[in-house]
């Protein structure tokens, strides 16, 4: 297993000759994604901050998606999940995803409810 690295990323679009080469390739990719994030964060294009989707700015959705993309490549290529058996991979990935998605869902809904109570529930807090 240790020597059998899978050297394809982007579903086989990009094939590397060696594991070392793949590592540098991933670094370049992660750097580009981070640079895009920082550039968007500094310029904050009006087109992306003005429109919302599911109550959140499009720009923030882009940030979150890019973060998940980065997390995927760190886990898959740096932590070698790509080379592990799929059972191990699924156990590691889907357990937190399920729990965290549930946690985020209940907490953000509750927070939004409290926000509304503060806003129109005759509660003075901003004074």
């Amino acid at each position: 297993m240790a020597d059998a690295h899978k050297l394809e990323i982007f579903r086989g679009l990009l094939k590397f000759k060696s594991n070392t080469q793949k590592i540098w390739g991933i670094l370049i990719f992660l750097t580009i994604v981070t640079a895009v994030e920082v550039a968007l964060g500094i310029t904050k294009p009006k087109a992306l901050t003005g429109t919302t989707f599911l109550g959140m700015k499009i720009l923030n959705w882009i940030f979150i998606i890019l973060t998940l993309v980065k997390a995927y490549y760190i886990a898959w290529d740096f932590m070698h999940l790509r080379d592990e058996k799929s059972a191990l991979r699924r156990a590691i990935v889907w357990t937190p995803i399920f729990l965290v998605a549930y946690l985020i869902f209940i907490l953000l809904f509750e927070a939004d409810y409290i926000y509304n109570v503060f806003k129109d529930g005759f509660v003075t807090w901003n004074f």
Partner: peptide, 8 residues
């Protein structure tokens, strides 16, 4: 998630 809670 707690941070998100306080922020929302």
């Amino acid at each position: 998630a707690a941070y998100g809670f306080s922020r929302f």
